[in-house]
């Protein structure tokens, strides 16, 4: 099979059809939005930190998009629970693609990494390490 079909393994489709952590948090510590202009996909990530202000207690996402961006958001928000903001910051695009467990065709990498960029920008803005921006964009 070629790369494209390989992208749509059962795990990806399962997360797309039954996304984990989907919705809005009532009282998030921080929240951030991003978009992939190529697809028109938009994702919001809500993060609730534990009392230490460093450890992620819960992360949720909302928005619409392709299977790759939605599955990636579902899996990453799962992964974020218990992670510290430093650990989140250390993630790179390969980590998310590893999480997806499939080869992502070059044109679709932006779909896969959108949620990670949104979470990282949200955290950086929350910590004052980055000036506030309305929206993260993959382009």
């Amino acid at each position: 099979m070629s790369m494209g079909s390989d992208m749509y393994r059962q795990q990806i489709l399962d997360h797309y059809k039954n996304p984990r952590n989907y919705g809005d948090l009532d009282d998030p510590t921080f929240s951030h939005v991003g978009e992939n202009p190529m697809c028109g996909d938009e994702i919001k990530v809500d993060v609730l930190l534990e009392d230490d202000g460093e450890t992620i207690e819960y992360a949720a996402f909302s928005g619409e998009g392709c299977a790759i961006s939605q599955a990636s958001a579902s899996m990453l928000t799962d992964e974020l629970q218990g992670m510290t903001l430093d650990e989140l910051d250390d993630l790179d695009r390969d980590d998310v693609i590893d999480l997806l467990g499939v080869d992502i065709s070059p044109m679709r990498v932006k779909c896969a990494v959108l949620v990670e960029m949104v979470a990282q920008d949200g955290a950086a803005i929350h910590q004052g390490e980055k000036t506030s921006i309305e929206k993260t964009t993959t382009e």
Binding site: G4, Y8, C39, G65, C66, A67
Partner: peptide
Amino acid sequence: GVHAHDLASIMND
């Protein structure tokens, strides 16, 4: 239920 980009990827296959 299928985003146009997913559809295009499957078409490409």
